[in-house]
Amino acid sequence: MTPFQHGRPLPAAPAHLPPAVLSARGLVKSYEATRALAGLDLDIRAGESVAVMGPSGGGKTTLLHCLAGIVTPDAGQVLLQLDGATTDVAGLDDRRRSALRRSTFGFVFQQGLLIPELTALENVAVALMLLGVDRRGAEHSAAQWLGALGLGGMEDRRVGQLSGGQAQRVAIARAQVSGASVVFADEPTGALDSGTSAEVMDILLRSTTGTGRTLVVVTHDDDVARRCARTVHLRDGRIVRDSLCPGTAA
């Protein structure tokens, strides 16, 4: 991780709030004639669960991709503060952003994007093997995560042999097995029925904010957003509403 050197100074967090783990400053991103992000500022605090909502084309997924270092913004900064060091994610080269995604971030996508020819256990172990953990150790940790998420006994099933909800739980385990500090989820329940959706959100929240990690969820689903501590509404690449959800712990 490269220590932050040239970033805009971060505002100090109020005494009663934890510090921001991710801060977006003046993010601008365009795709040809379409402006996806138009100078967006956002602070996401450690241990917080944030739902990003808004109409299609409003910039939700682009924001998530910029925060996670999947794409670089045309202008602005994404500052990651971890272990006393600040890193400008957007300023890192491709190789370092990849390394950051492996070590610090976890991802849950709508389609799961699990590797179809691998078993559930191997799919989870991949995240650790990418960090250099040997296969035996990686599969041991992966098995523990699968067991914790209610998938004990399904380790040897291939992705095609799992239901949608089970596959998403495998994706959740993969996102966190390497100890990711921030988990990004893009429509994690988009392909699931309401019952399974609630179950997957339970597991996602319990395993992230429930253990002090940070969760950023892009969703169209009000029920999913209500489960998060905070909801950010985007329209035309800007935040139009940023509200805390009553009754949520984190």
């Binding site: 999947i70 990849s98 991802f107 994007l113 590797i115 995240a127 993969r174």
Partner: peptide, 10 residues
């Protein structure tokens, strides 16, 4: 799949 693996940091 390759795009997904790239996003995971592979």
């Amino acid at each position: 799949l390759y795009v997904g693996l790239d996003r995971l940091g592979m």
